[in-house]
């Protein structure tokens, strides 16, 4: 087949909603876009372990500690599936780590915000995982097979995390005055960064059109953001929390909630590295990687020795 007919075959699969598999021919840009997106997603899971990991040793009850520990462990698992999915596109995990540690690869900016109180464990589960699910559920039907299949598992666990987060918020909101204050404070701090998780407005999102065409993306940033606002306003009511945005108002005509202006200059600054914890997050990952080098070297050396001994036994 000529390149032209490869392209036709690929387009045809996309049009018929058939998944693309690792051995199928795919356009270079499709491969690059996927590597970028999947590795970013994997990095977000791994970096995302840090803000919540910050509270494991301080969780207020043994049950909460166990649930949080299991949740952060799930995130490591998600990172693992996603790195594996990206590897099917011809990039190694070490190379992806290297891109993360050198700042070449991005990850979800939300994790550059600090977790200051226990209530942040609730707010992150409720809002951040809630926003992540909205972004991710459509990816269960994305065109690249290994990514779509990884996302099915990820989404199941994420929705569990979201419920756990909401349950923390609910417990706080039913608690004492100081607990309600903790919940409101966390809501105030995480609300706007959560809205930013859907990415820049459609008008400023250069990759959206192509990604929608490839079914790497199923909805635009603004569509998903609106859906998130609509759902969250109702949930905040259940919690008895005040919306951190004075401009929230039901718009009868649109059938959606209107909301205030997002501070995009803050968003771009956090993406650029000026968020409150960008340096700490990367530093923590780099440190784990650098200090783990001798451990990985030892494991490799030992495996090689074993293999050599086994072949000696066989030869004898």
């Amino acid at each position: 087949m000529s390149v032209h007919s490869f392209q036709e075959h690929f387009d045809n699969l996309i049009d018929r909603d058939v998944t693309i598999e690792p051995k199928d021919w795919m356009p270079d840009d499709y491969r690059k876009t996927l590597i970028r997106q999947i590795s970013q997603h994997a990095h977000s899971e791994i970096i995302g372990m840090l803000p919540e990991g910050n509270w494991i040793t301080r969780a207020p009850s043994l049950r909460r500690k166990a649930v949080l520990l299991a949740k952060v462990q799930d995130e490591a698992g998600h990172g693992l599936y996603l790195y594996s999915a990206a590897e099917t596109l011809g990039i190694s995990r070490d190379e992806m780590y290297n891109q993360l540690h050198t700042g070449k690869a991005k990850y979800s900016s939300i994790f550059n915000y600090p977790t200051l109180t226990w209530a942040d464990m609730g707010a992150i589960g409720w809002l951040v995982d809630g926003a992540a699910i909205m972004n991710q559920v459509p990816l269960c039907r994305t065109s690249y097979g290994p990514y779509a299949r990884a996302m099915v598992r990820v989404c199941k666990e994420e929705s569990f995390h979201q419920r756990q987060g909401f349950e923390i918020m609910l417990t706080l909101s039913k608690g004492t005055d100081i607990q309600r204050k903790l919940a409101q404070d966390a809501f105030n701090r995480w609300w706007w960064p959560s809205l930013m998780m859907f990415g820049p407005p459609d008008a400023e999102s250069p990759n959206t059109e192509q990604s929608v065409r490839w079914r790497i993306k199923r909805f635009t940033n603004d569509e998903l953001r609106q859906k998130f606002v609509d759902v969250t306003v109702e949930q905040a009511r259940v919690l008895g929390l005040e919306m951190p945005d004075k401009d929230i108002k039901w718009n009868e005509e649109r059938g959606h909630y209107d909301f205030g202006t997002i501070n995009w200059s803050e968003f771009y600054n956090v993406v650029k590295g000026n968020g409150p914890c960008n340096k700490q997050r990367i530093e923590a990952r780099r440190k784990a990687w650098d200090e783990g080098k001798w451990v990985r070297d030892a494991a490799m050396a030992h495996a090689a020795k074993r293999k050599a001994r086994q072949s000696e036994v066989k030869a004898a």
Binding site: L50, A76, L80, K287, A288, W289, G292, K293, V295, R296
Partner: peptide
């Protein structure tokens, strides 16, 4: 948790 030498 989150700081291990190898993800696995």
């Amino acid at each position: 948790c989150g700081h291990g030498p190898i993800l696995e």
